[in-house]
Amino acid sequence: MKPFALPLSFNRSIIVGAVAAATLLQAPFSLAEELRIGYQRSSTLMSVLRDNNSLEEKLAEQGVTIDWYEFTSGLPMLESLNVGNIDISADVADTVPIFAQAAGADLTFYASEAASPSGQALIVLEDSDIETLEDLAGKRITVTRGAGNHYLLIAALESVGLTLDDVQVSYLPPADARAAFSQGSVDAWIAWEPFLSTSRATLETRTITDGSDGLASYKRYYLATTPYAEANPEVIATVYDALYEAGLWIKANPEEASELLSPLWGDLDPEILQNALQNRSYDVQPVTLEGLSEQQKIADAFLAADILPNAVDALDSPIWQPGE
């Protein structure tokens, strides 16, 4: 596997923890005695499993221990996955694997979360003169470059005959985007959870569109290094089952889940967090070629917008299936 480099337009986030010091020279893959998991603070299901130790307990029965590595965003997490510093990743937005595929990363999809189209939305302040997507022409809009909200912007503009050239796009990380939006430095922001529910609760906003009208499904994907997935299907199966159960638990216990996750998400008001959790499916499912169909649309849209360095066959990656 060759390391992949992020497009020059991306600034690499600092990887929290010891990942940067890990060696890139890996021993031949065999039955694992440890599992190195990459995650972000926003990795809801992995955060639940890390907090309640249920995954550790299940893997201990297989003689496997867990090392957790925290990342600040999905792109460096998948880069670290590709060079062998971690074995599996927590969820990333549907756009993120496309950049890894564009760079030839040898990664395997092992789980997905069903579509959460309401998990991101294009919002404006209440007193904005923007009423429709057509009104976005010439306006200042902020998204995070290469993220799910970037694709939603492209799809939304295309639906009314506009392109990125017809608007003024500011590429900002979520925290900076929220500050710019609240101060009126931009006219619109496509926010994702929990930033979306936080902004709706603390600012007077209106929603122009989200993905629920067919513009963007907004799925989440979980990936592993292909050699690890091939050598350790029993471990992957245990992780998959644990994620599935965590998703069921969150949907059945939103109040308890919000109390658990609040300190991990900057002491976010649990009531706001409950609203955010409602906008995500957390429905863990096997990955299928049919389910990946929107990935090709995203890849093609990013290539046309000069966001990807080269064309991608979004369906050309191994898929692990439960029962394998």
Score class of each variant (00 low, 15 high):
residue 275 N to C: 08
residue 270 P to R: 02
residue 276 A to Q: 06
residue 246 A to R: 08
residue 289 L to I: 06
residue 303 L to W: 13
residue 303 L to T: 09
residue 244 Y to W: 12
residue 287 V to P: 05
residue 267 D to E: 13
residue 274 Q to C: 09
residue 277 L to V: 06
residue 283 D to A: 13
residue 292 L to E: 03
residue 251 K to D: 14
residue 261 L to S: 00
residue 308 L to P: 12
residue 282 Y to D: 00
residue 304 A to Y: 08
residue 301 A to M: 04
residue 307 I to T: 10
residue 250 I to Y: 07
residue 251 K to T: 14
residue 290 E to F: 10
residue 264 L to R: 12
residue 242 A to Q: 03
residue 239 V to N: 00
residue 276 A to V: 01
residue 266 G to V: 01
residue 257 A to N: 11
residue 270 P to Q: 03
residue 286 P to K: 07
residue 283 D to N: 14
residue 293 S to C: 07
residue 264 L to D: 06
residue 243 L to F: 02
residue 298 I to P: 07
residue 305 A to W: 00
residue 249 W to K: 02
residue 306 D to I: 06
residue 266 G to S: 09
residue 264 L to E: 08
residue 244 Y to I: 04
residue 271 E to I: 07
residue 255 E to D: 14
residue 273 L to I: 07
residue 284 V to C: 08
residue 272 I to F: 06
residue 241 D to P: 02
residue 268 L to H: 01
residue 293 S to Y: 10
residue 264 L to Q: 11
residue 260 L to N: 02
residue 293 S to E: 15
residue 253 N to A: 08
residue 240 Y to T: 05
residue 286 P to T: 06
residue 270 P to Y: 03
residue 291 G to I: 12
residue 246 A to I: 05
residue 268 L to T: 04
residue 264 L to G: 04
residue 245 E to D: 11
residue 304 A to C: 11
residue 285 Q to M: 09
residue 282 Y to R: 02
residue 285 Q to E: 09
residue 242 A to K: 03
residue 284 V to T: 08
residue 304 A to D: 15
residue 284 V to W: 06
residue 261 L to T: 00
residue 253 N to L: 07
residue 278 Q to H: 09
residue 267 D to W: 08
residue 288 T to V: 07
residue 242 A to R: 03
residue 261 L to G: 00
residue 239 V to D: 00
residue 240 Y to S: 02
residue 272 I to W: 04
residue 239 V to Y: 05
residue 293 S to Q: 15
residue 243 L to N: 00
residue 297 K to L: 10
residue 301 A to L: 03
residue 283 D to E: 14
residue 269 D to L: 00
residue 254 P to R: 03
residue 279 N to G: 10
residue 302 F to V: 02
residue 308 L to A: 13
residue 270 P to A: 03
residue 246 A to F: 07
residue 305 A to R: 01
residue 310 N to W: 05
residue 274 Q to V: 15
residue 291 G to E: 12
residue 303 L to G: 08
residue 244 Y to S: 14
residue 260 L to Y: 03
residue 246 A to C: 09
residue 276 A to W: 02
residue 255 E to T: 14
residue 279 N to H: 13
residue 251 K to M: 12
residue 278 Q to A: 14
residue 306 D to Y: 07
residue 255 E to H: 10
residue 296 Q to N: 10
residue 264 L to P: 03
residue 300 D to T: 10
residue 280 R to V: 15
residue 240 Y to L: 04
residue 262 S to F: 09
residue 307 I to P: 01
residue 256 E to S: 11
residue 300 D to F: 00
residue 249 W to F: 00
residue 280 R to A: 12
residue 290 E to T: 14
residue 282 Y to G: 01
residue 290 E to D: 15
residue 300 D to N: 10
residue 267 D to L: 05
residue 275 N to T: 13
residue 258 S to W: 08
residue 244 Y to M: 10
residue 260 L to H: 04
residue 243 L to A: 01
residue 248 L to I: 09
